[in-house]
Deep mutational scan, measured.
Amino acid sequence: TETYETTDETEARKIAEELKRRGLTFRIERHGTTIRIESD
């Protein structure tokens, strides 16, 4: 499991693209301005 936290929408998108490219599944949670991406 890898966890990323960012407040930057663009960075979050880049992380999501990278995880997809590596064939990982992940979920995105939003907590206020923080975007949390957690891979399975």
Rank of each mutant, 00 (worst) to 15 (best):
Thr1Gly: 11
Thr1Ile: 13
Thr1Phe: 13
Thr1Arg: 14
Thr1Glu: 07
Thr1Cys: 14
Thr1Gln: 10
Glu2Trp: 15
Glu2Thr: 12
Glu2Gly: 07
Glu2Lys: 09
Glu2Asp: 06
Thr3Met: 11
Thr3Glu: 05
Thr3Asp: 03
Thr3Ser: 10
Thr3Arg: 11
Thr3Gly: 04
Tyr4Ile: 03
Tyr4Arg: 02
Tyr4Cys: 04
Tyr4Lys: 01
Tyr4Leu: 02
Glu5Gly: 01
Glu5Cys: 15
Glu5Phe: 12
Glu5Asp: 04
Glu5His: 06
Glu5Arg: 03
Glu5Ser: 07
Thr6Gln: 01
Thr6Gly: 02
Thr6Tyr: 03
Thr6Lys: 01
Thr6Trp: 01
Thr6Ala: 05
Thr6Glu: 01
Thr7Ile: 05
Thr7Gln: 11
Thr7Arg: 06
Thr7Leu: 06
Thr7Gly: 05
Thr7Ala: 06
Asp8Gln: 03
Asp8Cys: 10
Asp8Thr: 04
Glu9Gln: 06
Glu9Ser: 05
Glu9Val: 08
Glu9Cys: 14
Glu9Asp: 05
Glu9Gly: 04
Glu9Arg: 06
Thr10Ala: 13
Thr10Arg: 10
Thr10Trp: 10
Thr10Met: 11
Thr10Ser: 11
Glu11Met: 10
Glu11Lys: 06
Glu11Arg: 05
Glu11Asp: 05
Glu11Ser: 05
Ala12Glu: 01
Ala12Thr: 02
Ala12Ile: 04
Ala12His: 01
Ala12Cys: 15
Arg13Trp: 11
Arg13Asn: 09
Arg13Leu: 13
Arg13Tyr: 11
Arg13Ser: 10
Arg13Pro: 01
Arg13Ala: 12
Arg13Lys: 11
Arg13His: 10
Lys14Glu: 09
Lys14Arg: 12
Lys14Asn: 09
Lys14His: 09
Lys14Thr: 08
Ile15Gln: 02
Ile15Phe: 08
Ile15Gly: 00
Ile15Glu: 00
Ile15Thr: 02
Ala16Thr: 13
Ala16Gly: 06
Ala16Asn: 01
Ala16Tyr: 07
Ala16Lys: 05
Ala16Pro: 00
Glu17Asp: 11
Glu17Asn: 09
Glu17Arg: 09
Glu17Tyr: 09
Glu17Val: 07
Glu17Ala: 12
Glu17Gly: 07
Glu17Ser: 09
Glu18Ile: 08
Glu18Leu: 07
Glu18Lys: 06
Glu18Cys: 15
Glu18Arg: 07
Glu18Pro: 00
Glu18Gly: 07
Glu18Trp: 14
Leu19Gly: 00
Leu19Ser: 01
Leu19Lys: 00
Leu19Gln: 01
Leu19His: 01
Leu19Pro: 00
Leu19Met: 06
Leu19Tyr: 04
Lys20Glu: 09
Lys20Val: 11
Lys20Trp: 11
Lys20Asp: 05
Lys20Gly: 06
Lys20Thr: 13
Lys20Tyr: 09
Lys20Ser: 10
Lys20Arg: 12
Arg21Thr: 07
Arg21Tyr: 04
Arg21Gly: 06
Arg21Trp: 04
Arg21Met: 07
Arg21Val: 05
Arg21Ala: 10
Arg22Glu: 02
Arg22Trp: 04
Arg22Tyr: 03
Arg22Lys: 07
Arg22Phe: 03
Arg22Met: 06
Arg22Leu: 08
Arg22Gln: 06
Gly23Ala: 02
Gly23Leu: 02
Gly23Lys: 04
Gly23Tyr: 02
Gly23Phe: 02
Gly23Arg: 03
Gly23Val: 01
Leu24Ala: 05
Leu24Asn: 03
Leu24Cys: 15
Leu24His: 09
Thr25Ala: 10
Thr25Leu: 10
Thr25Lys: 14
Thr25Val: 08
Thr25Tyr: 12
Thr25Phe: 10
Thr25Ile: 10
Thr25Gln: 12
Thr25Trp: 12
Phe26Glu: 15
Phe26Ile: 15
Phe26His: 08
Phe26Val: 15
Arg27Cys: 15
Arg27Gly: 04
Arg27Met: 07
Arg27Pro: 09
Arg27Lys: 11
Arg27Asn: 09
Ile28Asp: 03
Ile28Met: 06
Ile28Val: 11
Ile28Ser: 03
Ile28Thr: 06
Ile28His: 02
Glu29Met: 12
Glu29Gln: 09
Glu29Pro: 00
Glu29Gly: 05
Glu29Arg: 09
Glu29Ala: 08
Glu29Ile: 14
Arg30Gln: 08
Arg30Met: 12
Arg30Leu: 13
Arg30Lys: 10
His31Tyr: 12
His31Lys: 09
His31Met: 11
His31Arg: 10
His31Val: 12
His31Asp: 12
His31Pro: 00
His31Leu: 11
His31Ala: 06
Gly32Lys: 03
Gly32Ser: 02
Gly32Phe: 02
Gly32Cys: 10
Gly32Tyr: 02
Gly32Met: 02
Gly32Thr: 02
Thr33Ala: 13
Thr33Val: 10
Thr33Lys: 12
Thr33Ile: 11
Thr34Ile: 14
Thr34Tyr: 08
Thr34Trp: 07
Thr34Glu: 03
Thr34Asp: 02
Thr34His: 06
Ile35Arg: 00
Ile35Trp: 12
Ile35Val: 03
Arg36Glu: 02
Arg36His: 07
Arg36Phe: 08
Arg36Tyr: 09
Ile37Pro: 00
Ile37Met: 01
Ile37Cys: 00
Ile37His: 00
Ile37Phe: 04
Glu38Met: 15
Glu38Tyr: 15
Glu38Gly: 03
Glu38Gln: 13
Glu38Ser: 14
Ser39Lys: 05
Ser39Phe: 14
Ser39His: 07
Ser39Arg: 06
Ser39Tyr: 14
Ser39Val: 15
Asp40Arg: 12
Asp40Leu: 14
Asp40His: 13
Asp40Ser: 12
Asp40Gln: 13
Asp40Trp: 15
Asp40Lys: 11
